[in-house]
Write a protein that binds this DNA or RNA. Sequence first.
DNA 1: TAGGCCATCTGGTCCT
DNA 2: AGGACCAGATGGCCTA
Length: 336
Amino acid sequence: MLTLPFEESHGMCEARFGASYSRDSLAESLEQERKHNSDRSHSAMREADDDLSDRDEDEREDDPDDDDDGLPKKRGPRKKKHGREQMDRSRVRRQEANARERNRMHGLNAALESLRKVVPCYSKTQKLSKIETLRRAKNYIWALTETLSAGKRPDLLTFVQTLCKGLSQPTTNLVAGCLQLNARNFLTDHNGEVMFSGRSPYEAIYSYPGSDMNTPPGHSGSGLDSGAKTFRHYSYGGVYEPYYENPSPEGGSPHFDGQLSPPMNFNGIFSLKHEDASEYSKSGHYGMRYCGAPGRTALAHNSMYRVSPEARFPYDLHVRGQSFQPQGEVNGTFHN
DNA sequence: TAGGCCATCTGGTCCT
DNA sequence: AGGACCAGATGGCCTA
């Protein structure tokens, strides 16, 4: 495909933005050559792209006797007419391309919005930015994948930490708000590493004595009393590796690169979103459902996630499309 | 006011 | 040739 010479790009910049870039002699010579180019159609097309306003074209049209170099122009039915048509056509095509591009971006944004709604802690009031949405979705997918591959009952705190990996502080706060946790308990440092502050936020809310089931690796009960004084640094090698046996999908590194941020749509797991379940039923994929309805203890017979009587967050693994518990109360808790 | 986020325009490139 | 996709540039809006 045709590639415009470098100096012509400068020309476009000048025309579009009114900037006065200095040019070297080579550029000037090439520019003059361009002006004298006999290929009027191509030149006209570029000129039209240089400035979509009609002013230049009209000026040229209004002054037909003068050429660029001051010499009289040829008369008669000219290429000018043809060039004008080309310019108009080029302009129309450009406008059509702009409209297509707008639509394309709208479609992209719509897809992004749908993604926002399926990642955990969707909030209509505090909209997640595009990059944060993508990061969180990636983290979410990763955490779900690791949860399934680990074959263990997921740990909430670890899950949340994974979900928040690499996310901004406001987004982390949002997640914390969703979970009614104190974001200070799983801060993210400058490198995107999750910091954990002593007492497990999970335990802070769902504490029950003598149970380490929901305490993530490295979060033994020894430090629970230290409070915020002692910050424990978490890296994926330190925390997630024991739990998530597989390396990061980023490419083998056991450590997060600071870009990875984890999931919360326990909706898969906890149904943190307020989307109706039909959307998931359509997918036919696996998902873990929050089964925390009062009095509910029975799980699917073949469920890999067993619920201990004292467990506060019983999870169940369902095939999408199968029956699951109403999620209203959960959604009410996790959605703003 | 600086910085972040976003929508839009635009030209280049690739593909059909 | 034309559409899709991409990335750079730009300006507007919002917030700390």
